[in-house]
Write a protein that binds this DNA or RNA. Structure first.
Lengths: 345, 345
DNA sequence: TTATAAATTGCAATCGATTGCAATTTTTTT
DNA sequence: AAAAAAATTGCAATCGATTGCAATTTATAA
């Protein structure tokens, strides 16, 4: 392997200074056009590659955004990443993706790592079991721009991008009630998380608005994975619900499979409502009613906000925290729409 | 924002040299235990954060692996990433993920970017429309370890991790024939790609072994997205096939929906066979028979091989290219198993 | 007590690009 | 032709950690 070519090598061969080479490669107008061309030409010939490390060290900025995801294995996660990328690519930011596998320890290690790498900003969706944001202290101390999205900590003073989970929960429940359902089971995730809590609140509000008393027996918290959902649904069936509102399409699909195996008709006997509008919700039979969760848009908004903050920070202007709420959309499909019900609108 | 603390700051306060601080922080046994502890203690107090950029520049290694994916939006991609991560995390390598959105230009830009960032090695799955590997020249010139996986270029001399696509295609087709199918339609992707070509060859071989003549009208290449698949399937139905072997679970699911809408029974009227064993194949009705595509294992193998090569390279030993073939597994579910057929074993 | 070995610490160069300031050269103006 | 302005280039310091080699201190052996 030959030694890497540096600007000094180019400078020497051309009989100019490294300064000039550096400027030429950056197309600095201060350098004569002819010189610039000569430099570019030779750089190409020699197979010169810019050393980002050295440049970043000197410039004290990396043009890199760190992303901490609680999990990557989902359509939602990839949508968010795609949204982030759409914004960062044209702005020439790279993204460094880490994931915390739902644990606070991994999250902490990721924060540390990203700071060590001197990322210019961080986008985070909190891990399931991350109940405080103390481990973000190094980020706040350094005033590294930070945007939380989706899974956020209620109350914390920081910039957040969230969707209107309350409204989503309300719309889903309201729709089910409109279909004649009266005993709506709600199997959901950890209520310490804003996303599940807000949906639950929406569920409660809808019941209240229709003067249906909340029955705690119909509400069950679980991990929303296949095993736990299976158990939760099976247990719940003893209370004979006439609908399931499960704010996770995957878990709702698992639920539907169980109902199917028991010979229960969907939606005639039991209606099912999911959340997220995952790819699969449109492919299973019957198709699953759900709430569209615009991951792509969320990623876009988070990245856009973050980049704004990064730019402000460079100018030493101070940044004020704010919260962006993205509206949801209800998507009605076969799993919850009873033929006998009057069409809405 | 206060200035970042460096080893010099710590050195000054402790009245020792920066060398000692650096060594102490790295737990170098050459430094007295007490000194080490003092350094660690003060570093913690001052909120010192190691500057990875500076260290990497000096050490001429980044402990980072670049990953170029043709697309990130799939269960397969996330499985591969998870597999890679399983290997890299304990070895303290970070991963830098880029995606080429199936275009050769983006792929080229990504290669350049990763080289500029001085990653220690690269793992690549080629973009759909990347028909040569000339743009990897900068990688080869520098002898940066490189492992191709899944989508590889046939013939090229480099290390590859692939699965046995031929066997998968053969097994799927063979199974369908065993179920009594005689007109097996094959809707597949770009045959320039090894993955689709090999599956197609397996399909052909199975037909041949059962003395069924290949009917080109039953073979159709398309993009395997929803729109193109819909069109291909609709057209194909005019030839009245008794089975669809579509080597993509998503496209197979789209196909099933069309068949369902036309009132065709699966598998009685038409059997359907997918490829990948995606999450959704187990959730749709009827459940989809498929070939398990062990993305996680693939990621693991690719990362393991790459790290071996990186280590060899550091010792200046030369690396020899090799190909790792991962076996597939056939997964039989409702969409292809006819009740009337004799159960296999 | 002196010689030798082992432990501990530091000097100074290095990794490669960037940039404020100054110097030099060229062009334009008077 | 001299003075002023504009264009072009270079010097040298800087970013922060690492490391080969040497120096110093401490412990052990003779």
């Amino acid at each position: 392997m030959q030694k890497e070519i540096t600007i000094y090598d180019i400078a020497e061969r051309l009989g100019v200074s490294a300064t000039t080479v550096s400027r030429a490669l950056n197309d600095n107008p201060r350098i004569n056009k002819k010189t610039r061309e000569k430099v570019h030409q030779l750089a190409k010939e020699l197979g010169y590659r810019h050393n980002t490390l050295a440049a970043n060290l000197r410039k004290q900025q990396t043009k890199t955004i760190g992303v901490i995801l609680h999990e990557v294995n989902s359509y939602f996660a990839t949508s968010v990443l795609a949204g982030i990328e759409k914004v960062t690519t044209p702005e020439n930011f790279d993204i460094l993706i880490t994931h915390s596998a739902e644990t606070a320890e991994r999250e902490k290690a990721n924060v540390k790592n990203l700071i060590n790498k001197r990322v210019d900003g961080i986008i985070v969706s909190l891990a399931m079991h991350s109940h405080d944001i103390e481990h973000f202290a190094p980020v706040f101390d350094r005033e590294v721009p930070l945007v939380f999205f989706d899974r956020v900590l209620q109350g914390a003073e920081c910039t957040k991008v969230v969707i209107d989970n309350f409204q989503g929960g309300y719309d889903a429940t309201n729709h089910l009630i409109g279909q004649g359902c009266k005993k709506i089971a709600h199997i959901t995730g950890d209520l310490d998380l804003n996303v599940y809590m807000d949906r639950y609140k929406g569920y409660q509000k809808a019941l209240k608005d229709h003067k249906i008393k909340l029955n705690k027996e119909l509400v069950k918290v679980c991990g929303l994975n296949k095993a736990e959902t299976t158990q939760a649904v099976t247990e719940m069936l003893e209370h004979q619900p006439d609908a399931f509102f499960i704010p996770s399409d995957f878990a709702a699909a698992v639920c539907m499979e169980i109902l199917h195996n028991k010979g229960l008709r969907i939606p005639e006997d039991i209606a099912v409502f999911g959340f997220n509008n995952d790819m699969l919700s449109d492919l299973i039979t019957p198709k699953l009613s759900t709430i569209d969760y615009p991951g792509f848009l969320m990623g876009e908004m988070a990245a856009k906000t973050l980049i704004e903050q990064i730019k402000l920070r460079r100018k030493n202007k101070n940044v004020k925290d704010h919260t962006i709420v993205i509206p949801t959309e209800i998507i009605l499909r076969e799993s919850s729409v009873r033929k006998t019900a009057k069409p809405k609108r």
